[in-house]
Write a protein that binds this DNA or RNA. Sequence first.
DNA 1: TGACAGCTGTGATGCACATCACAAACGATT
DNA 2: AATCGTTTGTGATGTGCATCACAGCTGTCA
Lengths: 235, 235
Amino acid sequence: MTDNCANRMENEGCFMCKERHADWFCNLSPQALVEFETLGMQMTVPAGSTLFFESQSARSVYILCGGHVKLTTSSKDGKTLLVRIAKPGDVLGLSAAISGTAYEITAQAIEPVQVKSFQRQDFLHFIEHHLEGSMHATKMINQEYRDALGDATRLALSMSIAGRVARLLLEMTSGIRDAKPRFTMALTHEELATMLGTTRESITRVLSELKRKEIISIKGTSLTILRKSALELLV
Amino acid sequence: MTDNCANRMENEGCFMCKERHADWFCNLSPQALVEFETLGMQMTVPAGSTLFFESQSARSVYILCGGHVKLTTSSKDGKTLLVRIAKPGDVLGLSAAISGTAYEITAQAIEPVQVKSFQRQDFLHFIEHHLEGSMHATKMINQEYRDALGDATRLALSMSIAGRVARLLLEMTSGIRDAKPRFTMALTHEELATMLGTTRESITRVLSELKRKEIISIKGTSLTILRKSALELLV
DNA sequence: TGACAGCTGTGATGCACATCACAAACGATT
DNA sequence: AATCGTTTGTGATGTGCATCACAGCTGTCA
C-alpha cells in the first residue's frame, strides 16, 4: 500500500499510463481513449480525504489509477461496515451514476491516491456512445454484484471474526507481490472494528492471536504478513 | 403466494398481460414488444422444478410473469443460503447471461410458476439493439447489486435469526395486499434453516416465539401474518 | 389398525463473541 | 520529566445460537 504510484508521474494521463491492464475500464481502443482522456480530470487526493459520501447524490464517477480507497456503507442504526478496499483499476460511483440515485457507499482514500474524475453526465454520455465502454461498464457492475453476493454468502454462512480480519488484511495487500507483504496500518483497532461490524476488543484479540501464531508481525504501524496461506485459510 | 396468476390465462403472451407494471422489464414500447414477444417462449413450470442450477453455464434468461421462485446460492463447504424470493416482474439469470459465465444462483419454483424463457443469445441481441431494453437490463442488474449489498450490510451488522425469518416471511407475502396476508408454507423447518444459514431447531424456536407473541398464526400449512409491522421491526 | 418415516417441539450443554471494567503502553504538549 | 489523552491489552461475565439428544406428532402404506 506504500508506493503503488511510484512508477508513474502525477497527472500524466491515460496514454502514458503503464497500469492499464486488460480488464480495466480504461483499456480502450486508441480512438475511444482520445475522447475518454479529454472528458476526465486527473487528480491526486491526499490520504484521509473522502471522494464521496453515502446518500450524497451522485455527481461524479472516478477511476482509481493508483492507491487504495476504503469503501464503507452504514445501516440505519449508524453502524458502519467495510464493503471492500478498492484497488487500482476499480471504477467508483458507477452504480449510483447509472441508476441516477445517491451513492450507496462512502469512498475514502486511506493513502495518497491517483484518480481520474468524470462528471456523471460526461461519463454516461461516453458509455452510451461507445459499445466497448458500455460493455465494460455493464461488466463492472455485474462484477460488483457478484462480489456483493459473495460477501453476503460468506457473512451469512458463519464467517468468523478472524475470517473477516483475514479478508481485510489480504485486501490491503492486494497488488503487493512480495511473498511477505508489508504495509503501514493506518487504522486503529477501533476503526477496524466498526469497519468489520465487530468490537474493538475482538480486533485486539484476533490480531494478538495472529501474532502469537506468527502469521503476521507488527512493528509500530508496520504490519507484515508472514504466512499468507494461513490467512487465506481463515476466510 | 396462492393465486397470483388467477387473473391471467396461461400462455397468452405479453400483449394481453395485465401485470406489466412500470418498472418491469417487459414494459416496452409497442414496437419493441412485438419483437420481444416473438423471441421468448411462454411456459408454465410446476412447483418444485428448477429453472437453472448454480454453476451451470447460462443458456437462458427468464422473465417471471407469475408465482414465486426461490433463489439460493451455496458456499464451498456445501451450505446453502437463501438469496431472495423472486416475484413477478423479476428477470432471472440476467447477470450470468450478460457476463457470459455460469449462473451464480439456483432458481427453483416454490409453486406453479409462469415464465417467459429466452435463449441467452436472443436476449442479449435484443438488449443490444433496443435502447429501452438495454437501459432496463442495466438498471435491473444495478438493482440486484444494491439488494445484494443491502443483504450483506444487514447480515454483517448483527441481523439476528429472528430478523432473517421475518425478512423471509415478508418476502413471501410481497404482492399480497391484505392487511393480514395468508399463504401456504410449502417448506419444512429444515429447508428454511439451510436457506437462512441457521439450524432447524432455531427455526422451530423462532416460529414458536412468533406464534406465542401472536405476530403470526399457523394452521396446518397455512401461515397468516397477524402483525406485519412487528415483523418489519425485527428485520 | 399398526408400524414406520419424516417432521416438529423442547431441554441440556458448549462456544464464539459482545459487553463491561480496568490496567498498561504510547505520544503529544508543556 | 511530568501530565494527559488516546490507543492497546486482558480478564470476568453474559447472551445468542449451534449442537446433541430425545420425545411427541402426523401422514402413509400395508
